[in-house]
């Protein structure tokens, strides 16, 4: 069952990464924090998002093989993106909390699984 908990934690990391990238955008940042982001914040969030994405992709292909890992990662990205969009449009205030919660769940799963 190692691959299932692995998949779930990859999903949570992707959620975190895409959440960062959403917050890097002006309108989402404003909806969430009720103020405008500084350019440095935007850039920081954007590249953090990319960093986490790259890292989780690396983890994926490391443990599941290049072909299977890549395909699974594409699927995970689509689904995580959907979740981020739903949170950002219906519960923008809770986006950071959910990001923090989901990524700690992911880390926990990594250690358990």
């Amino acid at each position: 069952m190692i691959s299932n908990s692995m998949t779930l934690s990859l999903l949570t990391f992707s959620y975190l990464a895409l959440g960062c990238m959403a917050l890097a955008m002006f309108s989402h940042f404003r909806d969430t924090f009720k103020r405008s982001p500084t350019p440095a914040q935007s850039r920081g969030l954007y590249w953090t998002g990319w960093g986490i994405l790259t890292l989780s992709y690396y983890l994926g292909i490391r443990y599941l093989g290049f072909a299977y890992g890549s395909i699974l990662f594409t699927g995970i990205l689509s689904f995580a993106g959907l979740l981020v969009i739903l949170t950002a449009s219906y519960q923008p205030k809770h986006l950071p909390h959910l990001m923090a919660g989901s990524s700690s769940l992911g880390v926990a799963l990594m250690f358990i699984g």
Partner: peptide, 22 residues
């Protein structure tokens, strides 16, 4: 096999299904 997803285990199969719904 990408089209038929015959290799997909339950979790990946679910993602294929979700993408199909999308």
């Amino acid at each position: 096999s990408l089209h038929t997803a015959r290799f997909a285990k339950p979790v990946l199969r679910a993602f294929f299904f979700i993408c199909g719904i999308m």
